[in-house]
Structure formats: structure tokens, C-alpha cells
Design a protein around this nucleic acid. Structure first.
Lengths: 125, 125
DNA sequence: CATCTATGTTGACACATGTCGAACCAAGCG
DNA sequence: CGCTTGGTTCGACATGTGTCAACATAGATG
């Protein structure tokens, strides 16, 4: 074995652009970079099917759900998979295979971060 | 005068789908209609340029700004106008002409409504 | 009225996105 | 090993979207 476990960098999908993202929208005008980062998350939730999938996962027991539990949103199964992938790439969901089924889970910090974006007053006091 | 002020219905752009929209995303799976409504707002903020414009208005003095104050976001003026229109159609901004300039203003209830969508626990107690 | 400035609208175009069917991978099971 | 079930990936297609240049409109001002 020539290359065992070299280059641990360059992970395929890193939801790093989530938690410490940006100040509240009302605090000051967003910079281009901040807008780019935050818009990615809003965009991920900007599709009805994705929003239903995300809500289904987020409201499911333990903030986690099997694909089979939430794939009844009126589109084909490949489309469901496609949207779940998008949500994963946006850092809103994580997935894990356990035996036969694949479970998706929502990061609580994501909701908190996005919620802070939309606060009226930054409470600078 | 044959038709003076008849038919006050059918307004051109009504941001009605904003305030009492949907329960928190984590409360229960969204219905198709709820998702459609909420996704429209998220989608409107899902573009970096629009997010910058919205943030610029929201953070401006009095939650209101002239187009000339916020149109420095790296795109042409028609594009700015186009995005502001989109934000208006999504119910996130309102506009008003005062003399030479057009002022855009953010509805505080909108931020509150979207913030509620992203709350972790609905505090059902 | 002529004209200038500030915004909005139109038309066109490149590109991104949502969707599906078909093919493919991954586990369990006979 | 082949079959079945759950899920993803691929390829293709139609539609949506962001962008700009050109034109149009609304007030102000001379």
C-alpha cells in the first residue's frame, strides 16, 4: 500500500460556512463575502421541496429522520435525493448510513445562526 | 366620469404572504402550501446581491434608504432595480417615491416572522 | 417646453436549477 | 450467489434566473 491515509485535507462536503457566519442583517450593510455565505443558506431553503424536507427532518423525533420517512413530498425519489444533497452541501443537514437506511440530521447551530441573522436589534445596549 | 375609483381590489403587488405565515420549521413537517409561501421569502434572500441590498436597507437609518444610497453593490443599475423589485414582490420591502428619489423600507414584521420560522423550540411549555 | 438626473422596464442571452427515467451502488436475505 | 429493497448518480431536458444595454418614465430645473 503506497498511499495510506495521506492528504487528510480536501474533504468532499464541509458545512463550515454555517455557524459563525454574519452579523444580523440589520446591524450594518453586508459585505460581498458575508452576503455570498449567508445567501447560500437562504438559497438552500428557497425551494418548497427542500423546505418541506428540511422541516420534516427538523421536526422529526430527535432531529433525525430516515429518507424513507420523509420522501413523500410529491416528487420522484431521485429528486428527493438531489435536494437532500443540496441541503447537505449548504451545511444544513448531515447524513449517516446505518445498515439499510440513510438518516439525515439537522445541525441545531444552523437554526440558531440563521435566526440571529434575522433579529431586529443586535442588543448592543 | 364613468369609472372613478371603482374596483379597489386587485392591487398590483401585495406583500400579504408575510406576517402570519407558518409555524417554526421544527414544530411539524411543513405542508406544501406553507413551504411554497415560506420558500418565496427565503428564495428572495437567496441571492448575494439581493441580500446586500436588503441588509443595506434594513441597517440604514430608520430602516429606510434611497436607491442612490444602496446601489453600490457591483452590478449595473437596471440589475439593482430588478432585484429591488424581486424583494418587493416577496413582501420583504416596500417602496415610495418622494420627489426625485425612491425610498425602500423594510417591514419589521417580516424579520420577526422569518426569525420565528427558525426558532428551535416553539416554547409550547 | 427643453433638459437633466434618478429609476424603472424591455429584450436578449448565458447560465443555473428542478425534474425525471435509467442505470448504478449498498445491505440484507433466500 | 442472485434477488429485493433503499438510496444515489447520470444524462437529458425544460424552465427559471441574473445580467446588461437600450429605451422609457417621473420629477426637478432652467
Amino acid at each position: 500500500m503506497s498511499n495510506t491515509k495521506v492528504l487528510p485535507l480536501l474533504e468532499p462536503e464541509v458545512p463550515e460556512a454555517v455557524a459563525p457566519c454574519c452579523p444580523p442583517l440589520t446591524e450594518r450593510p453586508f459585505t460581498a463575502e458575508e452576503a455570498e455565505t449567508a445567501a447560500r443558506m437562504f438559497k438552500a431553503l428557497g425551494d418548497p421541496v427542500r423546505l418541506r424536507l428540511f422541516s420534516a427532518v427538523a421536526s422529526h423525533e430527535g432531529g433525525e429522520a430516515c429518507v424513507c420517512d420523509i420522501s413523500d413530498v410529491g416528487v420522484s425519489q431521485p429528486t428527493v435525493s438531489h435536494h437532500l444533497k443540496k441541503l447537505k452541501e449548504a451545511g444544513l443537514l448531515t447524513s449517516e448510513r446505518r445498515g439499510t437506511w440513510v438518516y439525515y440530521r439537522v445541525e441545531p447551530s444552523v437554526l440558531a445562526a440563521m435566526g440571529k441573522l434575522l433579529t431586529i436589534a443586535p442588543a448592543v445596549a
